[in-house]
């Protein structure tokens, strides 16, 4: 049973169309990621779901209820903003309590719920601090606690981690996922970081120029990109046109597709059964973590990724025959 339905959503700002025909169906308790480059309309979708921006056309249902004309405060939708939007004049505790105070809950109950929530986000000691006295990661957790405490039907997160450094970010991604599962909360996260999307989502919607380019589980999207955009955005795929690739491989490729994608790590140097060859001259080799990325130049340039574990060293300037399994050559539409 779908919990949130977005149907035929359109948005124009003046004369420019920012969202075209967006359709999404989200189940209860799912962790959804909207992934796409800057300016593709991710925040606009969240703001329309929250009721902060009106759609030009299209419908949104949450838990069976049509959201048309419903005020933000009536929607039971929570949101965490990229810049946190903590209330500067209130302490951590007061920030977190704000939503419950608006519901006129009795003060002892509020006190109790705030304490619980601060424990969940590990901020009990900071209860009386003001936002400006907190680190970025701590502010982010206050924003999360403030949004979660009113138990919204869905929590929208607009690049909540993008201002944080890599280490804290990894930690908070894990925390976020854990809290989401603990509370069985439906969440929609916006990000332009494909690794983040891969790491924490149940399903990803990849967006491009105001449209949904592809949706599916992280594995499905990673292993079966449908278009050149998704292939390049999500996995740094090598993308070739049909004539180029046929020339490099020296064979005819089956099907109608005009473009093909090959994951860099599917390319290797030793030949296995059923492999097809790829010719190229090594141009550059870079280490990143335990991965070596080598750029080859043949009829077209391509990238190979190997794990760095006693692999034979690649000599720059030398010609190689690389190999790729037939099924790793993905036809794009």
């Amino acid at each position: 049973m779908t919990y949130i339905t977005i149907e035929g959503l359109h948005k124009k700002f003046g004369t420019s169309t920012v969202l075209h025909e967006i359709d999404m169906q989200i189940n209860k308790g799912e962790f959804i990621t909207l992934l796409g480059p800057s300016g593709c309309g991710k925040s606009t979708i969240l703001r329309i779901v929250a009721g902060l921006t009106d759609a030009s056309s299209g419908k949104i249902h949450i838990d069976g209820q049509d959201m048309t004309g419903i005020q933000p405060k009536e929607r039971q939708v929570g949101m965490v903003f990229q810049s946190y939007a903590l209330f500067p004049n209130m302490t951590v505790k007061e920030n977190v309590a704000f939503g419950l105070r608006m519901q006129k809950m009795n003060p002892t109950e509020i006190e109790k719920r705030v304490e619980e929530m601060l424990a969940i986000v590990h901020l009990t000691e900071k209860a009386d601090a003001y936002p400006k006295e907190l680190s970025g990661g701590q502010q982010q957790r206050v924003a999360l606690a403030r949004a979660l405490i009113v138990r919204p039907k869905v929590l929208l997160l607009d690049e909540p981690l993008s201002a944080l450094d890599a280490q804290i970010r990894k930690k908070l991604q894990a925390d976020l996922r854990m809290i989401q599962q603990q509370l069985d909360m439906t969440m929609i996260l916006v990000t332009h970081d494909q690794e983040e999307a891969m790491a924490i989502s149940d399903r990803i919607f990849v967006m491009h120029n105001g449209r949904i380019a592809q949706s599916g589980t992280p594995t499905a999207i990673y292993t079966k990109p449908k278009s050149e955009f998704v292939a390049q955005f999500i996995g740094h795929y090598n993308v070739f046109t049909r004539p180029t690739l046929e020339k490099m491989m020296g064979t005819r490729l089956p099907g109608e597709a005009t473009k093909f994608a090959i994951r860099p790590e599917a390319i290797h140097l030793e030949q296995r059964a059923g492999d097809v060859p790829l010719q190229g001259t090594a141009k550059q080799s870079l280490m990143s973590g335990n991965v070596i990325r080598t750029t080859f130049e043949g009829t077209s340039t391509f990238l190979m990724e190997q794990l760095h574990q006693g692999e034979q060293a690649i000599r720059i300037g030398q010609s190689y025959t690389c190999y790729v399994a037939q099924e790793d050559v993905i036809a794009l539409s």
Partner: peptide, 20 residues
Amino acid sequence: NVDARQLLDAAQLLGASKMQ
């Protein structure tokens, strides 16, 4: 020094009216 629009948005999503 503050993103006033966003503060208002945040407060409204937490159940406040525009006036509140």
